[in-house]
């Protein structure tokens, strides 16, 4: 009897959240889907049916194709960079060094600051000017005699997105480090000890025992970092402004909606972004929830 009451109560407790999510997320997604299937262009709403026209046009739109390539480049470099830097830092900090707490906090702090704040600094740092106008990292490298490192950063043809990813790695690698450090600390010392007794080298212990155990952490980190990279927007605007070689779908969506009042096309880009996130996230959710159920 009281159990039934509690079931009702438990449903009642989550209902506000479900209603809110239902309206603010799924309701708005439904609105976007509807707009993406319309001809709405201009300030006045126009819900006349356009079918999949907006989507089909996007796939032959040279700008959108640039965007897709840029997103792939950015995502790969950003995610791999964060994982590599994060894992390396975590392994180093896991050695019980003096000053560990200091380094931990220091590596984590960039995620506390938004790109509204640091964007200009990154713009200065990655200034590609040469000669007597040289500044930023290039000037630093040149003064340190590291001239081979001087490059044109985000203006590098075809690979400019890699420079943008560098700033993003700066922001999120500390967070990845924290995730990995948590994972490392959760591995019982007994497992290492047992391997050492068996005569395994430190290197083999990491490659054969520790890294496989960190796989779930890697997966979670990839999901979190992956969705950040699909939505990257203000970072690029802050560093490079709006320019086509560094265009991504989120910027195209913003410009076509608010500069061109092409609401239906903007909504179609938004839905495609969401779908690509779904491709990433649904197998993950399925996998984690199922493996949980097995336990």
């Amino acid at each position: 009897m009281s159990k039934n009451k509690d079931t009702v109560l438990s449903i009642a407790l989550v209902t506000p959240s479900i209603v809110a999510v239902g309206i603010f997320i799924y309701g708005f997604i439904a609105w976007s889907v509807r707009v993406s299937l319309s001809n709405w262009k201009g300030l006045l709403p126009d819900y006349s049916w356009a079918g999949l026209k907006n989507y089909i046009n996007l796939f032959s739109d040279p700008r959108f194709l640039v965007d897709v390539r840029n997103t792939v480049v950015f995502t790969v470099i950003f995610v791999l960079g964060c994982l590599a830097v994060g894992l390396a830092l975590a392994i180093m900090l896991d050695q019980n060094l003096k000053g560990e707490a200091f380094f931990r906090s220091l590596f984590l702090f960039p995620m506390a600051i938004s790109f509204i704040v640091t964007g200009v600094v990154w713009r200065w740092l990655m200034n590609p000017a040469a000669g007597d106008r040289m500044s930023g990292f290039n000037l630093l490298f040149s003064n340190l005699g590291l001239d081979f490192l001087v490059n044109s950063w985000h203006l590098t043809p075809r690979w400019g997105m890699a420079a943008i990813a560098l700033a993003a790695i700066w922001q999120m690698s500390g967070y990845t480090m924290a995730l990995y450090l948590g994972g490392l600390r959760a591995i019982p010392d007994e497992i290492r000890e047992a391997a050492r007794v068996d005569g395994a080298s430190e290197f083999r212990i990491y490659t054969n025992i520790i890294f496989p155990l960190l796989r779930p952490v890697t997966l979670s980190a990839m999901i979190i970092l992956g969705h950040i990279s699909l939505k990257v927007f203000d970072l690029i605007i802050a560093i490079a402004g709006k320019q086509l070689p560094l265009d991504v779908p989120a910027i195209y969506m913003w410009q076509t909606t608010f500069d061109g009042y092409f609401f239906s096309r903007g909504a179609a880009i938004g839905i495609l972004l969401l779908l690509s996130v779904a491709v990433l996230i649904i197998p993950y959710l399925y996998y984690t929830l199922r493996s949980e159920a097995e336990i």
Binding site: K231, I269, I281
Partner: peptide
């Protein structure tokens, strides 16, 4: 304190994390 359907609710809520906010400004 799961009720029936709780395991479906959770991923539905979670998915909301991934919505690109720029695309829902107008209905918001």
């Amino acid at each position: 304190w799961k009720f029936r359907g709780a395991d479906l609710i959770f991923p539905l809520i979670l998915f909301g994390m991934f919505i690109p906010y720029q695309s829902i400004l107008i209905p918001l």
